[in-house]
Design a protein around this nucleic acid. Structure first.
Lengths: 207, 207
DNA sequence: GGGAAAACCCCTGTTTTCCGGGATTTTTTT
DNA sequence: AAAAAAATCCCGGAAAACAGGGGTTTTCCC
């Protein structure tokens, strides 16, 4: 029996997943969790074979959670579940140790197939995911930039529509510093104006 | 028996909803559809009592669909299902005739409760939705701005990081015109710089 | 078909961001 | 404790966005 754990914060979605998993005789559902913290706690007491993990969780990002789980329990396989088909999101999950990536608009049996595939040591991407990756040069695959706490803070204020001067005032720092952060953000996201940074950050759910 | 139809493009979610609805004896599931077009077609041949409608559909926006359904079949009650708790999204759905708004992180029985409540002629908002509305002044409740085709086009180009001049070049219009659109967009969204416009538009899934 | 609203277009001056450097002081991580 | 990463600060010139004004042409609704 393949032991599966579900991490997903939408109960209705969990209900659907349970139903799908139950329909397969070789799979055993070993619990479900609504956020990152509770699943990390649970893992200390024993690990499943596979974790079905939503990328957007209420507490920590799926990317981070994925990395942490794999660091501690390298044998646990992770399948990412997501509504995003953005290339950097997919790429970041895979880089952080996910063995599969299935979009939420996939059919139920794609999940089953994914589970068996990765138990065989394969990597499983659902068809729409493959589609999303195909168009991108494998060379210039970009991961989601890792931004610092301060940068995030400034990004949020920029998103609110504040000017550099207003931000400087609010955070009790110089306008020059704010401009530096702005510059670094543009650099990290590989764009040349703040508007694009905000758009991308919003797409990657970094705000 | 209350006849319910589900409009939702994530099969796993549909699976979960079916499960929940099946568990209640007074509710009968009358079909599910993955996009706006197919449900509009189906409605011509007969209407259910209630439509459970995802706000983010692949073809048209839930807000539009909601309006169209209510225009043609005013007796059909609509419950919006969404992952967003943004106030303008909620507000726009209700303005377009939705009788209920349930977030996807709600528990299954919230759905059941919502169905019975609106069949009794009440309006049903799940607890998190109420929470999201509470913080906002009822006075300055803002609907999602209606933007024109041209404005959307320009917004997308801005989001790509193009400057006013590059946009003007690409669309064969003057930079002044682009600036006008920019101005109108800021006006419509009630903010004073383009970055905020892009952020909001992205939140409301207008891009 | 006619009128209103929306969409589209244009201009000038002021403010803000962007770009190109460079440097010092905390934190964090190893 | 050393090395790496973050956070802070600084400058000046160029480029772009913003604010506030006005005008013409489509489109849409009655």
């Amino acid at each position: 029996m393949i032991k599966v754990v579900v991490v997903e914060d939408h109960p209705i979605m969990v209900e659907g997943l349970k139903n799908i998993l139950r329909s397969d005789a070789g799979i055993e559902l070993n619990g479900d969790y609504g956020d990152g913290k509770s699943v990390l706690q649970a893992l200390e007491k024993g690990q499943p074979d596979v974790i079905l993990m939503d990328v957007n969780l209420p507490d920590i990002s799926g990317v981070t959670l994925c990395g942490e789980v794999k660091k501690k329990y390298e044998d646990v396989k992770i399948i990412a579940l997501s509504i995003h088909d953005e290339q950097p999101v997919i790429h970041s999950m895979l880089q952080n140790g996910a063995s599969g990536y299935v979009l939420k608009n996939a059919l139920g049996n794609e999940i089953i197939r994914a589970i068996y595939a990765i138990m065989d040591g394969e990597e499983y991407l659902c068809s729409s995911t493959k589609e999303a990756l195909k168009n991108a040069d494998m060379e210039l695959l970009k991961a989601i930039p890792r931004i610092t706490r301060r940068e995030k803070e400034i990004l949020q204020l920029i998103g609110k529509g504040l000017t550099t001067m207003q931000i400087a005032d609010q955070l009790f720092i110089s306008t020059h510093t704010v401009e530096s952060h702005r510059k670094n953000l543009m650099e990290k996201f590989g764009v040349n104006n703040t508007t694009s940074v905000v758009k991308l950050a919003s797409e990657y759910k970094l705000l």
